[in-house]
Amino acid sequence: MIATTTWKHNLTNYQNIENINNSGLQHLEIFQPLATDKIRIQLNNLYDEIPLEISKMEIYSDTSTKKVVTLDGSSQFTIEPRLIEWSDWIDISLPANAFLSIDIFSSNKTIHTAGLTVSNDLIKTVETDPANPKYFFGLSAIQVEAKSTHKKIAFFGDSLTNQGNYSAPLSLDLETNFHIMTANYGISGNRLLRPGHSTSQWSASFGEAGFTRFDHMLTNYQPNLVIFMEGLNDLLHPGTGTPINELPTAEAIVKAIYILKAKCRKHDAKFVPMTISPFGNSDGWTPEKEEIRQKINSELLKMPHILDISALVGKDNQLLPEFDCGDHVHFSANGGKIIADYIKEQLIRKKMI
């Protein structure tokens, strides 16, 4: 049997959020594409300074199949600060293409190590409003025992990836219909060239520079294909809480992306970059930034496997209304599904899936 990651989501440091677990119980439902008899959970307390106390953790496909998750044989356990650990393997019969329920009981009220989703396609939470962000804690990956290997795709980027409005429906499609496993390596606010550096209360959650965390993704996940969408925040942030002198040149962004492509080649992974989508009418837009974006996209269009998302979702310097969630930067749920279909069609046309 082969240990296979069936779900992976990047967690980050939301140090400004209090009482994420005010009720003491978190209920999640996470899509699982593979049938299995064994499963384990990656437990994550990477950004907190106090232990994460878990009094009970249960997984089930329906309430009659509840199984208690254990760590080192104990059903009550602690994840120490700055650590990630795998639970014990749990015997449980799970069907393919079904949602796995996960209940975590914890006395910790404020937990800063958290994940974020907006889409409900892969991760369902108690909060169901499709427009609202949903935060969750405690777990960052699921592995099952599978009978064969499966192709793996990593979605790497910023909030446009992290929120899931395009990546989650695409993942659901790829996992259900193509038996390809996926992982979301998006971090909201993330920049390609620099770590978070802002007067914004969200600055700590922006994470380390995408250029350096890309190496961790390649080494730890070992994807066969990387779908890459990053660089927008490098333009958006300077002058909006971030020093304006951190605005990069087009040449710097393009060079970094070519280096990431070369890193993928060394890891036998195909690199599928996307052009930077427009953000006109947003608070961070300026004519200078737009000129840089246009220069970057012009150079990126020379790359093999490039997907011209900018042309799909925008006109001139603005998102088209059907793709705009309302802030002139992020994708709407319906727009995200159009993007997902476009990417899938391109991957099929390029014979990558």
Rank of each mutant, 00 (worst) to 15 (best):
I2Q: 14
T4P: 02
T5H: 11
T5E: 12
L11F: 15
N19E: 13
I20G: 14
G24D: 13
L25I: 12
L34Y: 06
A35W: 07
A35T: 09
T36R: 05
T36V: 10
L43F: 12
L43P: 11
D48C: 04
I50E: 10
E53I: 13
K56G: 10
M57R: 03
E58F: 05
E58H: 06
I59E: 14
T63E: 10
T63F: 03
S64E: 15
T65A: 04
T65H: 02
V69Y: 09
S74V: 08
T78A: 03
I79N: 05
I84Y: 11
I84N: 13
S87R: 01
N97W: 08
I111Y: 00
H112L: 12
L116T: 11
L116K: 11
D121C: 11
D121R: 04
K124Q: 15
V126A: 13
T128Q: 13
A131P: 02
K134R: 15
F136G: 12
F137D: 04
S140M: 03
K152Q: 09
I153A: 05
G157T: 00
S159A: 12
G164R: 00
Y166S: 05
Y166T: 07
P169G: 06
L170V: 05
N177P: 14
I180E: 00
M181G: 12
L193H: 07
S205R: 10
S205I: 09
F214M: 05
F214G: 00
M217E: 00
Q222S: 11
P223V: 05
I227G: 00
F228E: 06
E230T: 06
E230A: 08
L232D: 02
D234H: 10
L235I: 08
H237W: 15
G239L: 08
T242G: 05
T242M: 09
P243A: 09
N245W: 14
T249D: 10
T249A: 10
A252I: 05
I253C: 08
V254Q: 04
A256V: 13
I257F: 14
A262V: 03
R265L: 08
K266W: 03
K266H: 07
K270Q: 02
M274W: 09
S282C: 04
G284Q: 07
G284E: 09
E291V: 11
I292M: 04
Q294H: 10
M303P: 01
I306G: 10
D308S: 04
D308K: 03
I309V: 14
G314E: 04
N317P: 03
C325Q: 13
D327P: 02
H328A: 11
G336D: 12
K337C: 12
I339W: 11
I339E: 09
D341F: 08
I348A: 11
I348P: 06
